Amino acid sequence: MKVCIVILFFSTFLCNGQNTLSFSENGTSPKASLQDVAWMEGHWKGEAFGGVTEEIWSPPLGGSMMFVFKLVSDGKVNFYEVGHIQQTGETLVLQLKHFHGNLKGWEEKDDTVDFKLVKVEGDRVFFDGFTFEKISDDEVNLYVVISQDNKTEKEVKFNYKRM
Rank of each mutant, 00 (worst) to 15 (best):
T88D: 10
W39R: 05
V113H: 10
D123S: 15
C15E: 10
K116M: 04
S22P: 08
K104R: 12
K104I: 10
G27E: 09
K45C: 03
I135Y: 03
D137H: 06
T88G: 00
T53W: 00
F99E: 08
E55D: 13
D149V: 10
K119F: 05
M66N: 14
E108D: 15
L92F: 08
F69R: 01
G101D: 06
Q95N: 14
F158C: 00
L92K: 04
K31V: 02
D137E: 13
A32V: 04
G27K: 09
V72R: 03
W106A: 04
V37Y: 04
D36C: 07
N102L: 06
T152I: 09
F127P: 04
T28K: 14
S58R: 10
G17P: 00
H84V: 02
Q86K: 15
R162I: 07
V93W: 10
T12P: 01
N78D: 15
A32Y: 03
V3I: 13
V93Y: 07
D123V: 02
K116R: 11
V125Q: 03
M40C: 08
V52C: 06
S58F: 06
V125C: 06
V118A: 00
G50K: 03
E41L: 03
G51C: 06
V120T: 09
G122L: 09
V72P: 03
V68P: 01
F132K: 05
D138G: 07
L71C: 07
N150P: 01
G101H: 08
V93M: 12
K45G: 04
F9Y: 05
E55K: 11
C4R: 15
V68A: 08
Q35D: 15
D111Y: 09
T91G: 02
G17H: 05
K157T: 03
I56G: 05
Q86L: 14
